[in-house]
Design a protein around this nucleic acid. Structure first.
Lengths: 347, 347
DNA sequence: GTGAAAGCGCTAACAC
DNA sequence: GTGTTAGCGCTTTCAC
């Protein structure tokens, strides 16, 4: 018998046992070509396959068909609560369609990202789901130029024709500003995300737009930029902002930044929401359990992964991309960290 | 030229361009066999490879060498903050060693777990990292029987010889009980994890052991079992426990359960930690920001993934498992949810 | 030091 | 309906 225990029986073994040619066995086992084979043979082959615990070697199949039924998923940081659900949503759809998911974590490092693309292409993945794109991303551009089926998740590159699925940042920010304006706030600060990422600039741009439209104070003093999406940066920029301005409310670029800001507020003896209202972005797990529970914009991360996968699957099936940018709906979730503007100015 | 844009040049193309035989090109490109080829040829081949942006087809290599340099990682739920860092830690070590990680999310479903194993073996993964094992797990047993290199993470099966890396549950629980006893608590409840999982029973067993050793009230009234590790189950069992007993402290099977319990405490008008102290388990991200900040046992999930990968890698290299069970150190992190036992009994 | 040739396990075009 | 054949891209004996 060929093949060791872990490797298992080969198609040739099955064919031999069923007394047919390997080609016939192949046809009998493949649902699509099964019709070309007599029913009796199909049964015999299937019985043999079962008896030998035959497990098709999909790698050999891939070599022949030039399709591996594998998709690469590239994320900047899997332990970030934003990306794990995205991967999960993607993997669920892909598995359903018979695809496997190869994961690569770039650790927010452009070099590692490029290496990941290389490795993944070496492995002949049929397509790529990329959540790690920066606005200027040579590696992603190379992917696009090479014609590798690729769908961007959550973040997009500037001037790219690659399909992209993301939360609707403009609508999310509109809801945030509207909510705060409705509570009477005009002095609203913004701790924006990194300018190197589309989410950072697009939310910041939308912030300015709606402050203008909805009549808030568009004071440059109230704007601060985080270098990364992190608690530490939220604290750093929070201090900077509070040092020179007296906002009654602050919108953070994401929930981590908001958490850092909350720490700073406490450190300064400022109460949230009595003195300063805070709005986050993403609605990470358990931010509803913070004190105060965080008002934030809920983004359907799992759906982003799932929809991205569907677009990629369609691309793979039809052989052509649909250059869609899909903006998924987001919802402001009002919780305890926002309240009406205080009578007297803060501090 | 063979191969389309996305597929790229093949080894044959490189050989042609360098004016050598494909076999020679193969040797020239492989660091291990490079010595067999003249330096001049090596340079010519490398130049050709570079010029054609040659990307070795690792799937073809795998077919020949019977190694895919791929590891399957199976988790019950990637969006659970416990497993994402574990996968990340594993992937980092594996990538470093030249392996890719294929992820499978079983959604806590034994059927999906078995299917995942099947798919992964079909794909000829060289080994498996399994974090979804239940105590009785036929699929995992089949893996072990088949001799598939497999390392269990975080949870183990009963009577298995498979190597396993986990946090030291006994030591974690000892610290939890000791901490509470030191604060004067004797009426300590336990909302244990599912009995179907090793972590559930082992923590519960350790709880009983140390309550005995350290002189707590080992009253069956103070014990409750969760069916899943979830906020909902924490709330359900929390209500049950509080309905019939008056603990001054409760140790939860994990942080999610603790969060559910915290909700119930509030719903009953019981203050934490003044009336009831609460201890969680895992130290999920942001439980330090809860109100009160959760005292919990920190488990090094990322290290579990990393160490598990190292054991698997060694197995793959040496061709034999070392049947280790590696218990990684854990640390109780005392925060605001635990306090000295109140003078008057709770409620 | 390099070329020739076989073959990993499978599929697909072509016979019969 | 089923067998035959070729070959996916690579590695690896075996010659020379």
């Amino acid at each position: 018998m060929s093949g060791d225990v872990a490797t298992g029986a080969t198609l040739k073994d099955v064919a031999e046992r069923a007394g047919v040619h390997p080609g016939t066995a192949s046809r009998a086992l493949n649902p699509l070509t099964q019709g070309l084979v007599s029913e009796a043979t199909v049964r015999r082959v299937q019985a043999a396959a079962k008896a030998l615990a035959y497990r098709p070697n999909s790698i050999a199949r891939g070599l022949k068909t030039n399709r591996t039924m594998t998709v690469g998923i590239v994320v900047p940081d899997l332990s970030n609560p934003v990306f794990a659900p995205m991967v999960r949503g993607a993997a669920a759809v892909l598995t359903q369609a018979g695809y496997s998911s190869v994961i690569a974590d770039t650790d927010n490092d452009p070099v590692k990202e490029a290496e990941a693309f290389d490795t993944l292409r070496s492995r002949q993945v049929d397509g790529l789901l990329v959540a790690s794109a920066r606005r200027e991303d040579a590696a992603v551009r190379a992917l696009a130029d090479a014609g590798v089926p690729t769908v961007l998740l959550n973040r997009r590159t500037d001037r790219t024709t690659l399909p992209c699925v993301m939360g609707d940042d403009v609508w999310g920010m509109e809801q945030a500003v509207r909510h705060l304006r409705a509570l009477g706030h005009t002095r609203i600060g913004h701790l924006s995300g990194p300018v190197t990422m589309s989410t950072g600039v697009e939310r910041a741009r939308a912030f300015r737009q709606f402050m203008l439209e909805l009549g808030g104070d568009l004071d440059p003093e109230l704007l601060e930029e985080c270098v990364t999406y992190s608690v530490g940066e939220g604290a750093r920029t929070g201090r900077l902002l509070l040092d020179r301005a007296r906002p009654t409310a602050i919108i953070a670029g994401n929930d981590q930044i908001a958490v850092g800001l909350l720490d700073v507020l406490e450190e300064r003896g400022l109460r949230c929401p009595e003195d300063v209202s805070v709005v986050g972005y993403n609605d990470m797990p358990f931010v509803d359990k913070l004190s105060p529970p965080l008002t934030t914009v809920h983004v359907p991360h799992s759906a982003i992964g799932a929809e991205g996968s569907r677009i990629l699957l369609r691309w793979l099936r039809d052989g052509a991309s649909a250059t869609t940018t899909l903006s998924l709906g987001v919802d402001l979730v009002a919780r305890g960290s926002t309240a009406p503007v205080p009578e007297a100015p803060a501090r």
